[in-house]
Design a protein around this nucleic acid. Sequence first.
DNA 1: TGCTTCCTCCAATAATCTATGGATTATTGT
DNA 2: ACAATAATCCATAGATTATTGGAGGAAGCA
Lengths: 225, 225
Amino acid sequence: MRDATSSGAKAALYDAFATSGKALASGKRLELLDLLAQGERTVDALAKAAGLNLTTASAHLQTLKQAGFVATRREGVRIHYRLAGDDVAQLFALLRKVAEAHQAAVPAARDAYLGEDTTGEMSHEELRARVAAGDVVVLDVRPVEEYLAGHIPGALSIPVNELADRINELPENLEIVVYCRGEYCVLAYDAVRLLTDLGRRAIRLNDGMLEWRLSELPVDASDLT
Amino acid sequence: MRDATSSGAKAALYDAFATSGKALASGKRLELLDLLAQGERTVDALAKAAGLNLTTASAHLQTLKQAGFVATRREGVRIHYRLAGDDVAQLFALLRKVAEAHQAAVPAARDAYLGEDTTGEMSHEELRARVAAGDVVVLDVRPVEEYLAGHIPGALSIPVNELADRINELPENLEIVVYCRGEYCVLAYDAVRLLTDLGRRAIRLNDGMLEWRLSELPVDASDLT
DNA sequence: TGCTTCCTCCAATAATCTATGGATTATTGT
DNA sequence: ACAATAATCCATAGATTATTGGAGGAAGCA
């Protein structure tokens, strides 16, 4: 008797966990999570950033909401989505880490997407020392809205697509430490390649904003216009 | 040009992560992961323990293998599956934690499955003190093969379904601290209810074997026959 | 009130996933 | 070589999910 009841309850519990698992079961949704880890966004902005039809993006967001991974906030006519908590970002980061560690296809796909890294990378410990020494400048190459939502204190903001035009904003004599969203974000790779092609000394930061936040390192949020 | 290439590569990378996400997208697979977190098992044993058709279990295990979550070892005619690493157990545990924190359905499903907890639970810190004081006995109520694959040092093994018959193996004067697989494992709940009904003092350990391992607490493995 | 914008809901189709029985492969024992 | 056992592979029916266009609901503004 109890067995019959409890076996249904057992399946219900595992299925509830699986509801959250399902949220991680689509590349598009993971892309949305990656964007949301940078800060809150409207549905429309998310759809554009992820290259999705508005309706499709909305549907994926509903799936994420069912899993409890995102929360919403209405502001006038638009609805802002955000991650429901740091633990969600942590789960997302761990999924990627485990996938990279155990799934042969990931390193290959990673290299194909990010391209070669000719310069290596710098740890945040080293960055702190070099910043203290006045030796480097930190550059955030994400879209401005993500910079505004939270960035490394003291970092300059030049989105990678404006970098060629605005390179004169960067001091010529310092090494440039570039970061973007996270470990698998292509922007910093592209930026470092561009900067070195233009004769600057540039290196990627080991962490993107995602890892930086999860390490509980300090974050500045601007409310610049 | 690079954009066209890289957008395909981008999707490929996210889809590779999603392959691992998909492994978490079915209640049955999560149940298999839960079992595998206790130690390696053959396909047949897993199928029986999870109440699955052998073919279905095999198919789910292939999905887990594709995600890189499990590894196999052949021994004669049978194939033993095991988790590919501690990080997989960690991911599984975090998924459950995040789901419970953010998904309203989980606490309800949890209570429906586990039943009421009338006694509360004991932390592993407290357990250590009580064991040192010779105040308690630790009881593992999982199936014997899981006990053999790894258990808390000094714990007795009486599977919950044999508990009523073998209760005389437990000292009468000590409080009994019961544990099983993990936070959502019903065995310890059932055992504590049974023991208290039979007039013993019994309490659940806060951790199951999953959490115990992940906390890097000491584990004994027997090679009893 | 009517119009616009942003988003969600609904319906339909295509694609994918789950579960299962039967066939196939790998290994062991006779 | 043959039979037996354990597991995977294959084909398929049924269920679930993804995507999209269009309708509908909620604010805000004229």
